[in-house]
Amino acid sequence: MATFQFELVSPERLLLSRPVEMATIPAIEGEMGVLPGHAPMIVALRGGVIRVQENGAETEALFVAGGFAEISAARVTVLADEATPLASLSRAESEKRLAEAEAALNAIPLTEPEAKRDAAMARVLAMQAAVAAAGAA
Rank of each mutant, 00 (worst) to 15 (best):
R75W: 12
A69I: 07
V20C: 10
S10F: 03
A126V: 08
A119G: 10
V76Q: 11
E100M: 06
P85G: 14
A134E: 02
S94N: 02
A39Y: 10
V43Y: 02
A80T: 03
V78M: 09
T111I: 00
S94V: 07
A74F: 08
G48M: 11
D81I: 00
A73S: 13
L45A: 06
V9L: 15
S17V: 09
A23H: 06
A87V: 13
T59P: 12
I50E: 02
L98R: 03
M127I: 03
V34H: 05
I25W: 00
A101T: 04
P109L: 09
E82P: 00
A132V: 04
N55A: 15
A132M: 09
M41T: 05
I28M: 04
E21Y: 03
P40Q: 07
K96L: 14
A103F: 12
I50L: 10
A115Q: 14
V131T: 03
D118P: 01
A115F: 10
Q53M: 09
V76H: 12
G30I: 04
Q53K: 14
N106D: 13
E82K: 11
V20Q: 13
I108S: 06
I42V: 15
L79C: 00
E93H: 09
V49K: 08
A107I: 04
E82R: 14
I71F: 10
T77P: 02
V131E: 01
T59E: 05
E82A: 13
A2S: 10
P11G: 11
G30P: 02
P113N: 09
A126Y: 07
L35K: 08
V76D: 12
A57S: 12
A87C: 12
R13V: 02
E112Q: 15
R75D: 12
E58Y: 13
L89G: 05
A39K: 09
A129Q: 00
I25K: 00
E7G: 07
I50T: 05
M1I: 09
R91E: 05
V49F: 01
A132H: 05
A130V: 00
V64Y: 14
L86G: 06
P40M: 05
P85N: 13
V64D: 04
K96W: 13
A69Y: 14
L16C: 07
A61F: 01
L110K: 11
R51C: 08
D118H: 10
A107D: 14
T111G: 06
G66T: 07
A2N: 11
N55C: 13
R51N: 04
L14W: 04
